[in-house]
Design a binder for these strands. Sequence first.
DNA 1: CCAATTCATCAGTTCAGCTTAAGGGTACCG
DNA 2: CGGTACCCTTAAGCTGAACTGATGAATTGG
Lengths: 309, 309
Amino acid sequence: MLDLHRLRLLRELSHRGTLAAVAEALSYSPSAISQQLAQLEHETGVPLLEKAGRRVRLTEQAEILVRHTETVLGQLERAEADLAASLREVTGLLRVAAFQTAALTLVPNAVTALARSHPGLRLRIRQIDPEQAIPTLTARDYDVVLGEEYPGQPQPRVPGVSLHRLGRDPLRLAVPDSFDAADLADLASAPWAMEPSGTSPRRWAQTVCRTAGFEPDIRFESTDMVFHASLVATGHAASLLPDLVWAATPIPGRLLTLPGSPARTLFMAVREGAHDHPAITAFHTALRTSLTTLKTTLPLPTTEADPAS
Amino acid sequence: MLDLHRLRLLRELSHRGTLAAVAEALSYSPSAISQQLAQLEHETGVPLLEKAGRRVRLTEQAEILVRHTETVLGQLERAEADLAASLREVTGLLRVAAFQTAALTLVPNAVTALARSHPGLRLRIRQIDPEQAIPTLTARDYDVVLGEEYPGQPQPRVPGVSLHRLGRDPLRLAVPDSFDAADLADLASAPWAMEPSGTSPRRWAQTVCRTAGFEPDIRFESTDMVFHASLVATGHAASLLPDLVWAATPIPGRLLTLPGSPARTLFMAVREGAHDHPAITAFHTALRTSLTTLKTTLPLPTTEADPAS
DNA sequence: CCAATTCATCAGTTCAGCTTAAGGGTACCG
DNA sequence: CGGTACCCTTAAGCTGAACTGATGAATTGG
């Protein structure tokens, strides 16, 4: 009988490429992974790994096993979901990774609602960059990862992970009251606050400025959008920020709607097979109602129709 | 993550009914089973077993897990089969349980053929009563069980096990030369050799005699059909025997064809998911050719058309 | 009512699988 | 080309999960 634990290691290897990465992801020493895979090879009697430079490559047979392992793991995930669904009360522990604005705004409301509706469900929230959190779904560090997708910056497709849309979060231009600007083009030489390079909000914001015909003068870089807001409030920079920020901090100046009414899409990533899990569907609906509640509460310019709400 | 090993124990329990039986089947102590299932209950946080007198009953949740476990185990079986199928040569070890006539006649030819065509395949044959061997398929004591089905004695359907027909083996009346009998009715007061009561050949043979209008005078009981044949040869008893016996021992007297040309059906039982395994398909074809070869070789009365060959 | 079954529990033991440490091969870079 | 960094493997030793065996409690059948 094939050992599922070893098969999982093989599957991780096929995703991550090196034994060291698998070990890192699953908190083992590389040696343990090497031994276990050697054992799997021995049990099956089939070569599964072959050296490729200083790395290893999966053989054709190993790929076959990986494919089956995916379906087996999905089946087990569904078993857990079915089991949880058969109970009246939703219980257990849900480990959530949330990006900053979600953690500050969406999540607290959702947690409150769930504490009332599903007292048996425990939540563990951690604020973390979603780009690095999504791969850890399959490593089972988290059950849910909240993510965002900026226009023109599509989320990479990760096998074994399914995405579930939460809604749109409109993106607007936040300008200090002291700035004399009516639209984007007026800010060609203004100081800007943006996210660090390499992030998708940064790529999007830069694209917006370049489309408007200028290269932004970026004076402040931070992943902290509340920091951006305070820079706007104190008159130091303009910034392109999503509406949800204003649920966490007061609107610091003027908000200008951008051409085309762009928005980031908020989504929830879970392991395939787990999306039926009652804890996850409960969390999903709690987030969606949290989002729509926040949207109607916020005193925002109603210059756009939002098809998501 | 649900532990597959523990799930397997739960599955066995749902089939066998008591912890003791599971322990017996899988060569553990009952204590080990109890501990493992308690652990599974603890991990899932869901009650899985409830006391029912001095036994235990599976809860609704446990049944859910069992259903999923069945599909997961089937998937793993298919993984192994796919893996083996991807290799050029058929290798590995095939553990076969065979009933007596099969072990004496069908199997040796098949083994010879396989040794030539698939030198990498090792076989371990054990002669054993198929009725007790089939349940052990799921316990993985055997990979293949050869079985027989007498007319009107249908094989019980075992979940997780699939049956594959090998062919018909005609049943005839073997009468000592010294007996003055032309058909069944002439043997109403003759001494008979039959299989022990409780077996399906016995039930069938008794039905045949009763249909012919008499209760047989059973003087010899044995599962050994070669013994039956020798009783016929030595003039001590008549017996209802399948043709395959004559591949193991000379025809001892006269063979009379029965009305309706009855035959037992020979089949091969394997775990579901394993029927695609190349070692098993190879064994299957070897057995079928072995059977047809034997049939054409035997000097038998050709009074019947055999639709199986 | 006693004997036999069956499951639960506890203490003791064994072995699979982990970590650490050392070694060898490969790529990349000055 | 040597140096360095990275990656995989192997050996040795240790730890904890899981097994055995003994004991006890509950239930059923003769």
